[in-house]
Design a protein around this nucleic acid. Structure first.
Lengths: 166, 166
DNA sequence: GCGTAATTCTTGAAGCTTAAACTATCTGCC
DNA sequence: GGCAGATAGTTTAAGCTTCAAGAATTACGC
């Protein structure tokens, strides 16, 4: 949090704070509603979970495989988290792991053929679910929302960067 | 998912699906960025967690207290979840629990004076964090985003309701 | 080359979360 | 009264998540 900005905002427009809070709560509600439904369907229809699905999705986009560290960055979760997820998925035969010869600290994951098949099924269904949930928005509403969320993302990232430098 | 809608959408505009998926991923990214930061700060500055904070927030808005069931509905989490959270917060002396005489199945929670004080500190900081993170948006951008997220929420809720009836 | 620092991943402890099964209580109907 | 069903909460097992500490390996500076 930038101290000057926060002070200024507090002094000048205490009402603005409430606005931002309400915006955040609504953002969170939307995400939670969609996410809960996706989790529920993944469990019900495929007996799997969202983190498993996300990990497979990351690997699907990288046919040459990904290291655990890259996956943890892309999924925005901790290293230890990926360790456990990968262990379960490997045990289920959906991914394969290989330690790299040129740097034996590094482990690379990739989809097995079965993992690829399984993810293809899940992914198609997932796309349909999302389309149905957000289908009530007109295309131009979706475009406007996309743009504004881009602005929001930039705002958050900028605030986080400032904080790092402070 | 409404079967007819999904079929129609798939047949008519395969491209639209990708749009909705991208919108969803961006929504999720925004939420995750903010949420991670809030969790990090709650832990760092107050040695607490987001679910604890959320539960206190729910109680703060209801001075007369809330039952476990009402809390679980407001927080959109399971019953068992609230049981555990409440147990920890009670042990820490931030909330008090009372079983109702008129219905001995029901337990009502309310903030202790210490819980109220503690939440006030956390809440003020929280409001500032959110304001700083979303402060990069112009007021009119925030208003537009608020409105569009309202539309998105309505779309999701409508889809979930249709599904229930199916 | 050798030691220090950085990187990559794993482990362990704690907490969060859910679904499903369970207990206790209450409501309504005969 | 007494039983059937509904309701409120708890428990349990499994998985997810984080942080902090640690192990293995590599990179760098001298």
């Amino acid at each position: 949090m930038n101290a000057v900005d926060a002070e200024t905002a507090l002094a000048d427009q205490p009402e603005g704070h409430k606005d931002e809070l309400r915006l955040w709560l609504r953002l969170l509600t939307c995400t939670t509603l969609v996410e809960s439904e996706i989790r529920r369907r993944l469990r019900q229809d495929f007996a799997t979970t969202l983190p498993r699905f996300d990990l497979l999705a990351a690997l699907e986009r990288a046919p040459e495989g990904l290291t655990l560290g890259e996956i943890s960055r892309r999924m925005m979760v901790s290293n230890g988290n990926v360790t456990g997820l990968a262990a379960r998925l490997e045990e289920e035969g959906l991914i394969a792991r290989r330690t790299e010869a040129h740097d034996r600290r590094v482990a690379t994951l990739r989809l097995t053929p079965r993992g690829r098949r399984e993810f293809a099924r899940q992914s198609a269904a997932h796309e349909g679910w999302i389309a149905a949930l957000l289908g009530g928005l007109a295309p131009e509403e979706r475009a406007a929302l996309m743009q504004l969320l881009g602005r929001a993302k930039a705002s958050v990232r900028a605030a986080l960067t400032e904080e790092d430098q402070a």
